Amino acid sequence: MVVKVLGQPHYACPRRVILGLLEKEIEYEVVIVDGKVGENKGPEYLKLQPFGLYPTIQDGDFTLFG
């Protein structure tokens, strides 16, 4: 199963998550959520991350956000 990292990969916090996944050799996929057009405040993203912040990590049915 592939871990999904939702957010902007060039921002510091999602980059830390990606670096950790690379270090542990865990397969991952980046799903870009564009905050400039308000995707992080849309209803679909707010279901995953109620504060609308980056990053959100999904592994199957498990969702983790900070």
Rank of each mutant, 00 (worst) to 15 (best):
I26C: 02
L53H: 14
Y45K: 03
A12E: 05
T63D: 05
Y45R: 08
L21P: 03
L46I: 00
P14S: 12
D59Q: 15
L19Y: 02
L64F: 15
D59I: 06
K4P: 00
I32V: 14
V33F: 03
I32P: 02
E25F: 11
I26D: 01
G60Y: 05
V30K: 04
C13Y: 12
E29Q: 14
L64Y: 10
Y54R: 00
Q58V: 09
D34V: 00
Y54K: 00
G20S: 15
K41I: 14
K47N: 05
L22V: 08
E23L: 14
F51H: 14
I32M: 12
E39C: 06
D34G: 02
L22S: 12
G35N: 10
G52P: 13
F51I: 13
L64T: 05
K4I: 10
G52R: 02
L48T: 08
I57L: 12
P14Y: 04
Y54W: 14
Y45V: 04
L19C: 03
Y28D: 00
A12P: 09
P43W: 07
A12M: 06
V31L: 08
V2M: 13
L22E: 13
E25A: 06
I26M: 04
N40K: 11
K47Q: 05
M1L: 12
L64H: 01
K4Q: 12
I57H: 01
F62A: 10
I57F: 02
K24I: 05
E25V: 03
L6C: 03
V37I: 15
D61W: 08
V2L: 04
G7C: 07
N40Y: 04
P50R: 06
G52A: 06
L22M: 12
F51D: 13
P43Q: 08
P55E: 01
K47A: 12
P9Q: 07
K36P: 04
G38E: 14
N40H: 15
E29L: 07
E44Q: 10
R15T: 01
G42Q: 14
Y11A: 13
I26L: 09
T63I: 15
C13E: 10
I32F: 12
G66A: 11
V3M: 09
V37Y: 10
I57Q: 03
L6T: 01
H10R: 15
V33E: 00
I57R: 04
V30A: 05
G35S: 05
P14C: 09
P50L: 07
F62K: 11
I18P: 13
F62Q: 12
L21S: 11
P14H: 05
K24A: 14
E39M: 11
D59R: 15
Y45H: 03
D34A: 01
F51Y: 13
Y11V: 05
P50H: 09
F65D: 00
L48K: 09
V37H: 10
V33K: 01
P9V: 00
V3T: 04
P9H: 13
F65G: 09
F51K: 11
F65K: 08
L22G: 04
V2H: 07
G52H: 07
P9M: 07
T56N: 06
N40T: 11
P55H: 06
E27S: 12
